[in-house]
Amino acid sequence: MLALSNVEVIYDKVILVLRGLSLEVREGEVVALLGANGAGKSTTLKAISGLLPSEDGEITSGSIRFGETRIEHRDAADIVRLGISQVLEGRRIFAHLTPDENLRAGAYTSRNGSLKDDLALVYDYFPRLKERRKQTAGYLSGGEQQMLSIGRALMAHPKLLMLDEPSLGLAPKLVTEIFEIVGRLNTELGTTILVVEQNARLALEVAHRGYVMEGGRIVLDGPAEELERNPDVQEFYLGLTETGERRSYRDVKHYKRRKRWL
């Protein structure tokens, strides 16, 4: 469904952020994109959704295919219309609008669909939003804002939904709730999902497959269960060691092991 091949992204004409990244998302899958801060995960999503120009970023080589269409140089509005929606990191709801208006802004590109049905669908998945639909969105709780942010992206009828760190700044209970809903969106609506996450354990629980990024490229990929068992992933992203116990930092040959990937 979505295929990135050797994508290179440069910010401000000098900073090379993605260094030949390739990944694939098949229809109906949930794919997790893991990696440390600064690995280029968010940049990858923005490269796909066409938001790079708004941050002075540019795809300088490689290709991004969505179905049969090349989308690496399309603008953001076109890409949303093709069926890719991105939930930005940090929720980014329209704070001075009500949840209702936020959702209607999300439906900007869907001209033919019935607005009422779409609103009903979102409120069905996020009943909490319905109670607060006429309040100012800026005053919703963090969890509600994240739900609104996801709901807003759903209004465009995405075939591929990309989530950037949906767990950011939320209580563990809410994070579980949100990931549960993400899983339901995949099974019930058939929405393909690409999720960027720091909380690797949770992401791999929902995902079918995962990719691990480091320094602007993919260093590891595989089915979610396999990644969960991978000793490197366990150590660096799941906080486990071979024995399942904490070890002294002296013994950890982080540097050496990570270097293998680069």
Binding site: S49, L51, S54, E55, A76, A77, I79, V80, R81, S85, Q86, L88, R92, I93, F94, A95, H96, L97, E101, N102, R104, A105, G106, A107, Y108, T109, R152, A153, A156
Partner: peptide
């Protein structure tokens, strides 16, 4: 109106509005 709400959305957060496909 759709266009009016889009204008307020842009006033609030341009990048998020772009991600909604708002020009």
């Amino acid at each position: 109106s759709r266009q009016g709400i889009a204008m307020r959305a842009v006033a609030d957060d341009q990048q998020a509005a772009l991600a909604m496909g708002i020009s």
